[in-house]
Amino acid sequence: MPDFTWETQSPLRKALVVGRHGAGTGAAGVTLREVRDIALVQVMARRGQAAATAKAAKKLFGVEPPTSPKAVTAKTATLIWSGADQFLAFAPHSGDEFYAKLADTFAGIASLSDQSDGRCALHISGPRARDAMAKFCALDLHDTVFPVGAAASTAIDHTNASVWRSADEAGEAVYNLLVFTSFSDSLWHMIADAALEYGLDAGHVSAVQ
């Protein structure tokens, strides 16, 4: 009997070429990272169970899930608003453990959908990140409109995406994107294209520390 091994693959394994691209040679204007090894579960409150869902989430994560387009960071996960009475729980991949814990917590009060492989997570930062994003994202990302912790379910190049702003790094905004896995090769090309004129630093990181 042959040996079966189960290596994972990134949907960006062709599109993502690690390194410095585009204009200039110094520090890149845009830093783009694929975040690998993620766990992602969509949590949708059942009819009449929004309050119970929030309570259960509080118990599990230590924070209430957002009730408006926001992202809340807890110790073990980030909870991202994804629609009325539903949110995405985003965490480092841990086999089946994360989903199992949620299934246990939300049994009977919320429906879950495992999206750990359904979405590709990206991280966009750098001094020109917002200029690059203005080319493919119709959201107003101005500090007063989209501050740290803001989130949105939006459309990028006609496909759904979740966007949220996490804590600034080195005084600069950091935007996080979740895009459908099957679109990620296409969207990566578009995002990279948008960033080339500012200089692009492309790479990947693992969500698992």
């Binding site: 042959p2 429906s111 359904g118 979405r119 896995t181 099957s182």
Partner: peptide
Amino acid sequence: ELDVQLSSATDQWAQFSIAGPRTRDLLINL
């Protein structure tokens, strides 16, 4: 009034159709 929640799972799964009279033989190996 119905308690139903919908979510697209299209991109979550790599799905393959394995077909033909030797499918079971293949599966037994798999």
